[in-house]
Amino acid sequence: MKCYLCAKEGKSTDAVGVCIICGMGLCMEHAVRDDIAMWEGGYPFPERKMNRTMPRILCPECNAAVKK
């Protein structure tokens, strides 16, 4: 797969990841990799942030939409 955003700019770059939301192929430059906090517990225990995080790759557009 090629990077969708690079293709729009007329470049052909191999994709290294896929946006989990829109499915867009992404090159290293365009992929936004984030570590998502994980929580454990909940009623009847207080929720606590776990030491582990979950990695997630998004395109810049979806990342901006999620962060809003």
Partner: peptide, 22 residues
């Protein structure tokens, strides 16, 4: 519930402590 566990009952809190959960 996610803040404190919302036991709002000492009997519930004691039971969770007695079974080593709290």
């Amino acid at each position: 519930g996610r803040i404190s566990g919302a036991h709002i009952n000492p009997a519930v809190t004691i039971a969770l402590w007695a079974t080593k959960r709290f």
